[in-house]
């Protein structure tokens, strides 16, 4: 019975995807044609959403500078699971033509688990659509579980983030707490980097209200 239910939700998940297009680089320019009349992604059940809480897919469209990557991380951690990350453009795969730049993060999957890459500089809308179809196939078969990786190997991802952003790096989301709550603690959840985080972490305070 629970298997039937799982399959039903997977079926529905694959057909209803809300994307948060975090338009980081030049690849973002290919998204408007994907959304509008010409290629119309709504016929696949994909529609744009504006806040991380509502979205299922985080589209990272192009190179991410270090400053931007911080925002991408904040966004990613606020999304509700199951969540999927798609890296569009070669720049997210290996740095692309920004390989020698001092200011961009080279590989996206060092900082967050990526479900699917759509390579190209920049990929055509057809490629984006076929990438989305690929992701839908994976979701329907229950294989798109990379969001669990983030909880299981949090130490690895946090380590790379600290390497880039400095040791003081912290986000408002308590990833370890969430992993414990949902039973997703793995071997890599805790480690030296999370120990460092616990040392420097200062608790979140409510914002001061001022007129």
């Amino acid at each position: 019975m629970s298997r039937v239910f799982d399959e039903l939700t997977n079926f529905a998940r694959a057909r209803s995807l809300f994307i948060l297009h975090y338009c980081t680089g030049c690849g973002a320019i290919e998204l408007p044609p994907v959304m509008t009349s010409r290629f119309d992604m709504e016929r696949l059940g994909v529609s744009p959403m504006v806040t991380p809480r509502q979205a299922d897919i985080l589209l990272v469209t192009g190179y991410v500078s270090i400053k931007t990557l911080k925002r991408v991380m904040l966004t990613y951690e606020q999304m509700g699971s199951p969540k999927y990350v798609i890296g569009i453009c070669s720049c997210t795969v290996n740095g692309g033509m920004y390989w020698q730049s001092y200011a961009t993060a080279k590989r996206l999957d060092e900082y967050m688990p990526v479900d699917l890459y759509i390579a190209g500089c920049m990929p055509r809308p057809e490629a984006v659509i076929s990438g989305l179809r690929e992701l839908m196939k994976k979701i329907e078969q229950g294989e798109a579980n990379s969001w669990k990786e983030y909880y299981r190997n949090y130490d690895y991802y946090l380590g790379n983030q600290q390497h880039l952003f400095g040791d003081q790096w912290q986000t408002p989301v308590d990833v370890i707490g969430e992993a414990e709550h949902y039973g997703l603690v793995g071997d890599g959840t805790r480690g030296e980097h999370t120990a460092l985080l616990e040392q420097v972490q200062h608790p979140l305070k409510p914002l001061e209200m001022r007129l």
């Binding site: 529905a12 016929r43 059940g45």
Partner: peptide, 21 residues
């Protein structure tokens, strides 16, 4: 545009209630 398939609103609702976190 073509627009969403017939059961789209139902899929949306099922998916949203089926979120794991």
């Amino acid at each position: 545009r073509v627009g969403p398939p017939l059961l789209q609103p139902l899929y949306d609702v099922i998916k949203l209630f089926g979120k794991e976190t």
